[in-house]
Design a binder for these strands. Structure first.
Lengths: 106, 106
DNA sequence: ACCTCAAATCGAATATCTTCAATATAAATA
DNA sequence: TATTTATATTGAAGATATTCGATTTGAGGT
């Protein structure tokens, strides 16, 4: 497996967990401080921190530190990148009927 | 966690694993029989079967049985659905600066 | 009916992910 | 500087995923 696939998989990890989808949903209405997210999602503080790391690593969420607080928001660039990737991964290159790879051992 | 998030997570599971991304890449050039995929991806037969199930469950890949063989291909509908979902999950609803939820305990 | 071959399912081993409690770090405040 | 507060990190437990070998199922062919 090459590095490329690993990186691509990382982007979509953001959307693979229910808790992260819940956080994402909360952030749709705008930037939120971690403490607000913690109040709304029923998980421990360290668990939230872990999920935020996964989200930030995917590029879909960006973090902004201000004093003691960390503010999270949906990244427009990261989201666009994920959408572009999804498009690429599912784009059929040639739709010809006589694709030699299609047939197998018959 | 509600059923909705679980179902959404399932769609993106397709893109969360390197092996599945490799299979997806192979299918971009058109429909392929499982035996062809098995030749090209270095995994056991039962492992491939498992991954194909995850891919089909996500809706991104569709399966067609013909005689002894199963042919897999990228589903245009499933891909569109995934793209739409991604869009929805990352769409910021209101971008107003005075979002009351943004500020926290200060 | 028997045999062959493609694919699915089962059961077990291993690896990865999720979660929490405890601790560490880092910023603000007394 | 000591204390409080927000978040990150660590370490360990439990849950879920991945993988494989063995077996089963199902469609053809002999």
């Amino acid at each position: 497996m090459d590095k490329c696939h690993l990186d691509n998989a990382k982007v979509f990890k953001a959307f693979c967990d229910e808790t992260r989808l819940r956080v994402l949903e909360l952030l749709r209405s705008g930037e939120k401080c971690a403490c607000v997210l913690l109040e709304k999602v029923e998980i421990g503080q360290s668990t939230l921190s872990h999920h935020m790391k996964v989200l930030v690593d995917s590029g879909v969420i960006s973090a902004r530190k201000q004093g003691k607080w960390t503010y999270y928001s949906i990244s427009a660039d990261g989201s666009k990148n994920a959408a572009r990737l999804l498009q690429e991964l599912t784009a059929v290159t040639i739709a010809s009927d006589n694709d030699e790879n299609a047939r197998c051992c018959e």
